[in-house]
Computed example of a mutant assay.
Amino acid sequence: MIKLHDLEFEPYISEEEITQVIDRISDEVNRDFGDKTPVFIGVLNGSFMFASEVVKRFQGDCEISFVKLGSYKGTESTGEVKTLLGLNQDLKDRTVVLLEDIVDTGNTLVELDQILKQSGVKEYKVVSLFFKPEAYKKSVPVDYIGMEIPNKFIVGYGLDYDGLGRNLTQVYKRKE
């Protein structure tokens, strides 16, 4: 059990399970993009650990960039996505692999879908370490899913609660 700010969290997904999921997703990405030179785009702050692991396992040439958007306050989505740090790279006619730590409401994905389409990408695919199907009500496809999880609040492995918990090597869920 750990405590972050005013909430308690219990162990949920081990570091070993996360590594196995990343190995599987990375194999799929290598299979599908190994003959291209994709631009990996990590969605900050949460995806920094996941993005690093996927890019380290990529066997071809690639580039990496990051975008920072935000929609959470505490444990709840505000429903509004704010672009905090945009892309500073020309993506016209490029293949993009979007790396997300978690997809829940999909609000961030809708915003990124618009940004990527406006930038003229040739194609893009969404890769998410965690996916909450109960919470997802949008139409943007999530092409690679590491693990489907219930609609519970989690921290660790890049995910936080008001800034804390990102450095944890395993994932914890909010104690009920």
Rank of each mutant, 00 (worst) to 15 (best):
F33E: 11
Q170L: 04
Q114E: 12
E17M: 01
I149V: 12
S128M: 06
F48V: 13
F153I: 03
T95E: 15
V121Q: 14
Q59C: 03
V43H: 08
V140A: 00
E10I: 15
D143P: 01
I64R: 05
N151L: 12
K122T: 12
I115E: 13
D93Y: 07
G163W: 02
I115K: 12
P141L: 03
L44H: 05
A51E: 06
K82R: 15
F58D: 02
S77E: 09
F153A: 11
K68Y: 03
G156T: 08
I115M: 15
V96H: 08
K173S: 03
G79E: 07
F33Y: 15
D32M: 05
D101K: 12
L69I: 14
D162I: 10
G163A: 07
K152V: 11
K132H: 06
L99W: 04
K82S: 13
D90R: 00
E100R: 11
E80R: 06
L91W: 09
D113M: 03
T95D: 15
Q170E: 15
D61C: 02
E8P: 00
Y136H: 08
V29K: 06
V171Y: 05
S77L: 03
Q118K: 15
E123H: 08
K36V: 11
A51M: 13
E100D: 01
Y144L: 14
N167A: 10
S52D: 13
Q20I: 00
Y136I: 09
K152C: 01
M1V: 07
F153K: 08
H5A: 09
I115R: 12
V29T: 11
